[in-house]
Design a protein around this nucleic acid. Sequence first.
DNA 1: ACGCAAATTGACAGCGCTGACATTTCTGTC
DNA 2: GACAGAAATGTCAGCGCTGTCAATTTGCGT
Lengths: 337, 337
Amino acid sequence: MRVRLEDVARATGVSPKTVSRVLNEESSVKESTRQKVLAAMESMNYRPSPAARGLAGSRSFLVAMLYDNNDNPASTYLAEVQDGVLDACDAHRYSMMACPLRMRGQDFIRRVDALVFDHHIDGVIMTPPLTDYAPLLQRLKEHGVPYSSISPVQRDSSIGVCMDEQQAAKALVMQLVELGHRRIAHILGIANHGASRWRMAGYKDALAAAGIPFDAQYVVQGEFSFGSGVLAARELFALPELPTAIFAANDDMAAGVMWAANERGLKVPRDLSVCGFDDTPLATQLWPPLTTVRQPSREMGKLAALQLMELLRGRGPGLLVQVPYALQMRESTARAP
Amino acid sequence: MRVRLEDVARATGVSPKTVSRVLNEESSVKESTRQKVLAAMESMNYRPSPAARGLAGSRSFLVAMLYDNNDNPASTYLAEVQDGVLDACDAHRYSMMACPLRMRGQDFIRRVDALVFDHHIDGVIMTPPLTDYAPLLQRLKEHGVPYSSISPVQRDSSIGVCMDEQQAAKALVMQLVELGHRRIAHILGIANHGASRWRMAGYKDALAAAGIPFDAQYVVQGEFSFGSGVLAARELFALPELPTAIFAANDDMAAGVMWAANERGLKVPRDLSVCGFDDTPLATQLWPPLTTVRQPSREMGKLAALQLMELLRGRGPGLLVQVPYALQMRESTARAP
DNA sequence: ACGCAAATTGACAGCGCTGACATTTCTGTC
DNA sequence: GACAGAAATGTCAGCGCTGTCAATTTGCGT
């Protein structure tokens, strides 16, 4: 009923082991044999059994995508990343298991162990903030499971994908400066996220480059959520001298700022310019459309997965590749009032 | 190194097969034996190997979540559903594979076959519009793979979860009527989605109940996306007599309507009431916050998965359960001008 | 205490593949 | 043309579990 490796072997007149070699792209197979086997596989529509491969061999052809599951603030982001990862897996005949992790407590240890022991996963792809969660990384290293990180803070010693967020943030704020803004506020993301750090650093860089003194009262804490954007904006609106522009560390918070601006009777962008970061779908669904930085999440997921698979297939060490950003200047920013 | 079933057997003094029986919750094991085995498993921290179970047995303890991947308009929705599904899987020691399907062409056949043959998946969970895609359903039936549907159009003969969307839509539009609206427009979703049908039907029900004659010019086609909402709204704004309220078939389109209203200089809700459906995060991130219907996507994913697993475990036939809706009256709707 | 069906347990092969190691078939060399 | 060494291929056991079917134990009526 099912076409097995043995069937292909018989049809080709070689031993099962040779077919196995072809399947696993081992180099010690004569090209002519390889072609014959490949042809037979094709014509017989042979599909290897992952279960058998996993049981007999050391590889499972399974990778896990780990993500933080505290709430799900950035579900769009995760969905896009996951899509990219699946894309790459598909191309390389890997399968992916999605695995939300709660960072609090020991839960994540159990989960990771389960993945490693039960499923024998070959590798892991992670999104922030997991990428820099030391206990997790350590556990993975102990298990000898390779991992690929998306936008990790620690950029050495890891493979994956990143974007020059600091440069991007700087460029964005420079645009605000160009528009004549001097009192530019920033809303920070969650403290231990690399994204928060870089975007803040870029903000400072831009101010410095423009010769605008850094003023701590224009920097308020947020936590990447819409609600935190609203709160942060209210805080800023309570200052004696209102900022003329607000750079929120992500789009959700920027949306919160616009919400709060409406509430307060401020007209965006006439009275206040607002910009975010990420270019989520939300950015173009707000009125006015949000100026932001495009982060190619899908592409990044794909690249991270590809790097991992390069490594798993023994084709080189895997790299930390960088993707380009792109400023999206839209109508939420305008000349300073 | 790894604790195997055999180790547990030896420790308990029974045969491996008996341990296997306990593992699989077969009924023909004496309670006292069961307890002993269970205790040993626990203390030895035994974890069965999915690969071995899949290879030897007929079950894989794998379910697949299938979803449509045309673009990814409703990524929030899918992310929530997936989260719920994973939750349920976790509780029942199943694993889940996410599997985006492109409905165009034959691609999906290949993919489904791959899932069934390669991974021996035990069952499938689907989201609209896959739930009613005949070729897919047929293929699954041919393979004898049970499936659980989320909001299927065909409500007989399938297990899964649904919501009374028609009733919900009716109730929502009734609220508009209560607010004094008479010219209420509706923006349709994608044609073959059940959601489009039900929401439209509810809209008609409400008009009928209120004695308002149905006027076809107030119903325009959309496709669930923000952009289509904008276009549809512009169409409505070109009518000689503008509607005073617009019920969009989902939140994204409602956001598009609000965008178009802004563009046109209409003030929501003063000049125009707007409402959507789904209660995505977007709904509370718009200004003003959007009146809509809460659909518990996460819960629905979980329930659909649970129903499937009930079936798989042979605990009853599995049902099509219904979840309650909840109107979310917010500031995007107000008394008719 | 005895017999019989039902309840419980066990023996054993084998799921489809790969790892370790053995064997055969090529190379090029002198 | 014989030979060492590399290249290519083959043999075989076994990964950890479950299906099949056989064996044993138990419960119960007489």
